[in-house]
Design a protein around this nucleic acid. Structure first.
Length: 265
DNA sequence: AATTGTCTCAACCGCGACTCG
DNA sequence: TCGAGTCGCGGTTGAGACAAT
């Protein structure tokens, strides 16, 4: 169910994520936030491209990702919003707490579109049967399949094109979009957005200083097989000072540390 | 038990939007 | 205003799970 791991031309790993990789990414993001997805894998000790890290975090590792089956209410809301907006998966995901756009998209392609197709064929079948009754009682519904095959379900319904889907698909159930708070936490994604993960910038700074020698990527460098290896400690210092807006004293302290390091090398 | 077909969903890809210097 | 870097979105792919034969 997962793609085999391989390496792309840039030396980045591709395919299925291992538990170790998940752990590294989770620990790093929860601790420091995702201040820059492109740079993040270097510091987290991952041989992945930033894009892959972002996707893995957003779709799988985020603590608020809800797993499991979709409820009728969720199905209803998805169909309703597809009606209104078309295939704006990210907007729809914003109305479904804990659901990702990818998950909703998959759910549409694997389940909802088929159910819609089935229900459309049932409803069209009923009409056909009524017509058949008027002309002939002996025909069976063998033609139903060929009829429904002409209905395109590979693409989501275009806005305002299928007014009866909801009524057909589910028992009437009023769902108000306002019942769901928009939870587009992902817009909170810049350097100090560690706060979105439960850390205030000040806490992150304090944390990063106090745990300076225990940074995840440093601890993991032993098995770091990409080109970063022992990514210069100074770069880590620089990035964190950049990301967390240190005060002058902190910067002085960092510069002092860097000088000491250079001397010690 | 072996083979084949279908389904599921995590992950990849390309592109447009956005941000910043 | 422009270009480079980055982000986020939607479409698509493909490996593994599962069902049917």
């Amino acid at each position: 169910m997962v793609k085999a791991t391989l390496v792309d031309k840039n030396g980045f790993r591709k395919g299925a994520w291992s538990k170790e990789e998940d752990d590294k990414l989770r620990v790093y993001v929860q601790k420091y936030g995702h201040w820059n997805w492109r740079q993040l894998p270097k510091f987290a000790g991952l041989s992945r491209c930033g894009k892959s890290c972002r996707l893995r975090w957003m779709n799988y590792l985020r603590p608020d990702v809800k797993r499991g089956n979709f409820s009728h209410e969720e199905d209803n809301l998805i169909l309703q919003m597809l009606e209104e907006l078309g295939n704006k998966w990210s907007i729809i995901a914003g109305k479904l707490p804990g659901r990702t756009d990818n998950e909703i998209k998959n759910h549409w392609h694997t389940n909802l579109s088929k159910k819609v197709k089935r229900n459309q064929s049932v409803s069209s079948g009923l009409v056909e049967k009524e017509q058949y009754r008027e002309t002939s009682q002996s025909e069976d519904s063998q033609t139903e399949k060929s009829e429904t095959e002409s209905v395109s379900v590979n693409s989501p319904p275009k806005p305002h094109h299928q007014p009866d889907i909801l009524e057909i698909f589910h028992s009437p159930q009023e769902i108000s979009c306002s019942e769901f708070s928009s939870m587009n936490n992902d817009s909170v994604s810049s350097s100090v957005k560690g706060a979105a993960d439960g850390f205030s910038p000040a806490e992150i700074f304090q944390d990063s200083v106090s745990d300076f020698w225990n940074l995840p990527f440093l601890a993991d460098n032993n098995d770091n097989q990409d080109g970063y290896h022992s990514l210069l400690f100074t770069e880590e210092v620089y990035m964190h000072s950049y990301a967390f807006n240190y005060d002058d004293d902190s910067i002085d302290w960092i510069q002092q540390m860097m000088q000491e390091l250079q001397y010690s090398n």
